[in-house]
Amino acid sequence: MNIFRLLGDLSHLLAIIILLLKIWNSRSCAGISGRSQFLFAIVFTARYLDLFFTFISLYNTVMKIVFLATSYGTLYLMYIKFKATYDSNHDTFRIEFLILPAIALALLINEEFTVIEILWTFSIYLESVAILPQLFMVSKTGEAESITSHYLFALGSYRALYILNWIYRWFLTEKLNAIAIVAGIVQTILYCDFFYLYLTKVLKGKKLQLPA
């Protein structure tokens, strides 16, 4: 464990907590893409199956349980408890165009052809594009609440910090995973447009407006 990876995981956890608090306190999921949250739940489910038969550390196990519980909790809030506030008209990104290529790519490019490895690889590929429905929804609605932009900033920062973690581990000649690194770079690049707007607008108190 290094400071970059710890900050990355905490940023990820912060993002999930910000989202849960936003939905719970405002009793509304307006502006939030249920499709992205659905993809995140798939990502965690496919990746954390090893939860039940490999123990790496207490931290690792606890965080996996927290991420699984909070992602399904978010789905519950969005699709059941506060379903009436879910903006399905603007949450229209075709997620099959994300899931199917991720499955195909995981079957073609992976470290070893086993079920657990294919599922892990699929979750890595899917995670790199899972935010697209949310970014698409923000561009369609033309703006986002500031709390949603804080959520996106924390979520985007998590994988950016992981890139620093991989650089750090490379200098320590620790073992690395090329698939996770390439997908992590793609994932972070998708946020660049948003990062620019967040740093130049939201932090100056303006509303976040993505060019439609």
Binding site: R5, D9, H12, D50, T54, I56, S57, N60, M63, K64, F67, E111, W120, Y162, N165, W170, T173, E174, K175, L176, N177, A178, A180
Partner: peptide, 10 residues
């Protein structure tokens, strides 16, 4: 090698 796989990350 450096790209041997270790799944200790979340």
């Amino acid at each position: 090698g450096v790209f041997d796989v270790v799944k200790d990350e979340l």
